[in-house]
């Protein structure tokens, strides 16, 4: 799996992401600076990592979404290429129009930094095939603006087309108000584009991939991508 990790000023999770990708795919990812106009030849997966691109100025992800490299990412996604955005990466993908909706301030206004449980809604996506449908995984979140919102019609379409892949839930998989950490519509933690090749999610699977991290539940996402790309090749 040849992956490319985008690097914007103010991003701080790119090395965690690169480490997880290397660990699980066996290949060192390319780090791609935001001012680049193209992606490395043969890229299978573009990852937009977390952090605080441009200091979250204007709106989270707004300025990064207009960076030169994003035109290349848009072209890559239009051609069916896989794109994964985590945390600030999810915000950047929404701002760039690659995913619908927007990530608003957390409903209770607090920055949330702890482990959460996610329910994997389906297992037939490149981003979830490492899990079983309905499986509950534990991964960390660290964000102040993860409250996913979209207009009613968009939400209906996301649900109807099965584009919600990850939802905040309790340890035993129950999605309710209590487990909805940030007030996101329908407890949405991660969605895919209409073609299913672009995933945005607020939680950080890359931070639960080694025993020393206390949990390896995040591995499935990357292992699933490796398997998917291996089969496609």
């Amino acid at each position: 799996m040849k992956s490319a990790v985008l690097v914007f000023p103010g991003i701080n999770r790119e090395r965690d992401m690169a480490r997880a990708l290397k660990l699980i795919s066996g290949h060192e990812p390319a780090m791609v600076w935001h001012a680049e106009k193209s992606l490395p030849v043969g890229t299978d997966l573009v990852v937009v990592p977390g952090g605080f691109s441009y200091g979250d100025y204007l709106r989270c992800g707004a300025i990064a979404a207009r960076a030169p490299v994003m035109d290349a990412v848009r072209k890559f996604a239009d051609g069916g290429g896989l794109v994964l955005g985590v945390c600030n990466g999810f915000q950047i993908l929404c701002e760039s129009g690659l995913l619908p909706g927007v990530l608003m301030r957390n409903a209770r206004l607090k920055f949330i930094c702890h482990d959460v449980h996610l329910r994997v809604e389906r297992s037939d996506s490149p981003f979830t095939r490492g899990y079983n449908a309905g499986q509950v995984i534990r991964v960390p979140v660290a964000h102040g603006e993860g409250n996913y919102e979209a207009d009613a019609e968009t939400l209906q379409r996301l649900e109807g087309d099965g584009r919600v892949l990850y939802r905040y839930c309790s340890a035993d998989g129950i999605v309710d108000e209590q487990s909805n950490i940030n007030g996101a519509a329908a407890g949405i933690a991660g969605i895919v584009s209409d073609r299913g090749n672009v995933l945005g999610m607020m939680p950080h699977p890359e931070n639960h991939v080694e025993a020393i991290m206390g949990c390896t539940d995040g591995r499935g996402l990357f292992a699933g991508l490796v398997e998917h790309l291996g089969r496609a090749a």
Binding site: L58, R59, A62, I63, E95, V102, M104, A150, D151
Partner: peptide
């Protein structure tokens, strides 16, 4: 349209 506002919200 391009930057100052996110016209979704």
């Amino acid at each position: 349209d391009k930057l100052l506002a996110n016209t979704v919200i």
